[in-house]
Design a protein around this nucleic acid. Structure first.
Lengths: 335, 335
DNA sequence: TTGAAAGCGCTAACAG
DNA sequence: CTGTTAGCGCTTTCAA
C-alpha cells in the first residue's frame, strides 16, 4: 500500500500538518524542517493521494468539455490543445461527448454535479434546457457559442463575421461576382455570423446574388458534396463557393474531382477552419487560431475558478486568412 | 450547498448507513424503508458525492488512455468509442496525450499513481521504460501494441498480418505483380505484422519484388506523399501500392492527384484502417473494427478491475476488407 | 433489517 | 513555526 501523510509525518518526526504545509505552502515552514521532510518524501517517493485532497478541499481540479463531434478535425485539435493546457495547469479535462443527444447531456450534467467538476467548456451544438440544473457556482466558458442560461460565462470566439467578409472580399477582388455560400446549421451562432459576413460583402458590392446562391449545410462533409450537386442544378453555376467550414469544402472538392470539375479553373473554393490536409491542393481558407482559442479558454476558466469570480465577457480571437490554391482570378469580363 | 447523506438520513428518519445501503445494495433494506428513503432522495434530488465515494472506497472509477496522435482519425474514432463505453459503465476516461514524449509520459504516470486510476489502455508508440513505476496492481490493456513490462495485460489487436495478406492477394488476383509496400514506423508491432502479411504473399506467389518496393513510412500523411515520389524515382514504377494506413494512402493519393496520376487507372492503391472519407473515390482498404476493439478493451479492462484478476491474454479482432474504387484489374499480360 | 461508530487521507482552524 | 484536533461525506464492520 502506498504511504500516507501520517507515515511521512512519523518518519520525519513532525506532525501531519507540517507535512501538509511542506507540500502546499512550504514558505510557512522553517527551512530545516522542510528539508528534513522533503528528504523523507523523496526517499519514499511519497505522493499525496489526489483523491483525499480533492475530497478534503472539495476541489476536484477537474474541468469538463462538452463536444458533439470528435471526428471533426477542428474539434480533435481543440481537444488536444485544451487537454494539454489543462494538464499543464494541474487540471484534468473530461471529454463529454454529447453527440447532440439530450439524454446524454443530462447524464453528463448529473455526472458533473456529482463529481464536483469545477468548470465547463462548451462548444457548439448543445441544447440549452438542461443547463439550469447545473450547480450554480459552476464556471463556464463557451467556445463559439451562445448560451441561454442564467449563469454568466466567458465567450471565446473567432471573429467569424469579419473573417468571412475578408475572404469574400478577396473573391470580389479576383473579379468574382457569382459567389455562392454554403452555410452551417441554422441556429448555430457561428453559422449565423459567417453568413452575415458573406451578406455584408454581397451588399457592399451590390452583387447580383439571390437566395439560390445560399445552400444550407450542416458542417458535415457530406453536405458539401450535396451543395455542389445543388449548385450544378441551377441555371447559372456560381464561379466561386465559400463553405462555412473545411469539412464541407472537402466534401465539395471531392465531389468536384469525381465529376471532373477543375478547381480552381472552373470553380473557386474557400473553406473555414484551417484544418484540411487531405487535399491535393492547399485549400484557401480562414485558419482559426486553435491554440489561441484553447489558451484563452483554459486560462480564462481557471482564473475564474481560482479567483472565485464570474462574469459575462467576450474574447475574440482573430482568424487568419490563408491563401491556398483553390481560387482563380477571373479575367475582367469573364464570369 | 448540496445535501449530504446525513441530511437525507435525518429527513428519512433513518441512519446514514441505511441511506448508503439504499443506494448501494438496496436488497439489504426492507421494502418499506427503501421506499421511504428513495422518496426523500428523489424529492431533494440527492446525488451522493462522487468525490467522497471515491475517497472512501479508494476506487476512482477512472481509466486512462495513452495516446500519441489524437489527430489521426483512427484514434479520434477510437477515443470516441472508448469514452462512450467507459461512461456507459460508469467509469471516467482520461486522455493522456503523450505526444511520444518521455517526460510527458512520466508526468502522466505520476498522475495515474496519485489519482488512483484503476486501469490503463495503451496504444502504439509509447516508450516502455516508465511502466515499472506503475503501481503494480494496475490493470492494463494494450491496443495493437506489445509491452515490455512485468505486469500482465490484455492485448487487443486486429489480425493485421492476415488482413494485409488478404488485401495483397486481392491485388495478385487482379493480375498485379509489381506490388509495392509503404510500411509504418520500424519498431511498432502493427507495422511489423502488416509488413509480414505483405511478405507472406510475395513469397507465396514468388513475386519479383525486391527491397526497392518497400518504403518505410511513419503512419503520417506526409510520408505517403513522399513514398509516391520515391516510387516514381525507380526505374520501374509498381502497378499497385499498399499503404500501411489510410493516412499515408491519403497522402499518396493527394500527391498522385496533383501529379495527374490517375488512380486506379495508372496505379492501384490500398490502405489500412477504414477511416478515410475525404477522397474523391472510396479507398480500397482494410477496415478495422473500432467498435469491436473498443468494446473488447473496455469490457476486458473493467472485468479485470472488478474481478480482481489479471492475466496475459490476446484477443484478435477481425478486420474487414473493403473494396473501394482505387484498384484496377490488369489485363493478363499487362504489367 | 437497522444503527452506532470508526475511519479513509488530508487540510485548516486554532492554540501554543 | 509547529502541533492538536476536528471533520469533509461516505462505507463498512459490528452489534443489536
Amino acid at each position: 500500500m502506498a504511504l500516507t501523510i501520517s507515515d511521512i509525518a512519523k518518519l520525519s518526526e513532525v506532525s501531519t500538518a507540517t507535512v501538509s504545509r511542506v507540500i502546499n505552502s512550504p514558505e510557512k515552514v522553517s527551512e530545516s524542517t522542510r528539508k528534513k521532510v522533503m528528504e523523507v518524501i523523496k526517499k519514499h517517493n511519497y505522493q499525496p493521494s489526489g483523491l483525499a485532497q480533492s475530497f478534503r478541499t472539495k476541489k476536484s481540479k477537474t474541468l469538463a468539455l462538452f463536444i458533439y463531434d470528435i471526428d471533426n478535425p477542428f474539434y480533435a485539435k481543440l481537444i488536444k490543445e485544451l487537454n494539454k493546457m489543462a494538464f499543464d495547469r494541474d487540471y484534468t479535462l473530461i471529454i463529454c461527448d454529447t453527440e447532440n443527444n439530450k439524454d446524454r447531456e443530462l447524464e453528463y450534467i448529473n455526472y458533473i454535479n456529482q463529481n464536483k467538476i469545477e468548470g465547463l467548456i462548451m462548444t457548439e451544438g448543445i441544447s440549452t434546457d438542461h443547463f439550469n440544473k447545473l450547480n450554480n457556482n459552476m464556471y463556464l466558458v463557451c467556445i463559439d457559442r451562445d448560451l441561454d442560461c442564467e449563469l454568466p460565462y466567458l465567450r471565446v470566439t473567432t471573429n467569424n463575421r469579419e473573417s468571412v467578409a475578408k475572404a469574400i472580399e478577396y473573391l470580389v477582388n479576383l473579379n468574382h461576382k457569382k459567389i455562392a455560400f454554403v452555410s452551417g446549421p441554422k441556429d448555430v451562432k457561428t453559422s449565423i455570423e459567417r453568413k452575415n459576413g458573406y451578406l455584408d460583402i454581397i451588399k457592399k458590392y451590390e452583387l447580383p446574388v439571390d437566395g439560390d446562391y445560399i445552400y444550407q449545410g450542416d458542417f458535415k462533409r457530406e453536405s458539401g458534396s450535396n451543395a455542389l450537386d445543388y449548385f450544378l442544378s441551377l441555371s447559372e453555376l456560381p464561379s466561386a463557393i465559400f463553405c462555412s467550414n473545411d469539412l464541407m469544402a472537402e466534401g465539395l472538392l471531392a465531389r468536384a474531382l469525381s465529376l471532373n470539375i477543375d478547381i480552381p479553373n472552373e470553380l473557386s473554393l474557400i473553406g473555414f477552419d484551417g484544418v484540411s490536409k487531405a487535399l491535393y491542393k492547399p485549400l484557401t481558407t480562414i485558419k482559426q487560431d486553435i491554440h489561441g482559442i484553447a489558451k484563452t479558454s483554459i486560462n480564462g476558466l481557471i482564473s475564474m475558478i481560482e479567483g472565485g469570480v464570474k462574469g459575462n465577457t467576450v474574447k475574440e480571437i482573430s482568424g487568419e486568412f490563408l491563401i491556398g490554391e483553390t481560387c482563380r482570378r477571373l479575367k475582367s469580363g469573364e464570369e
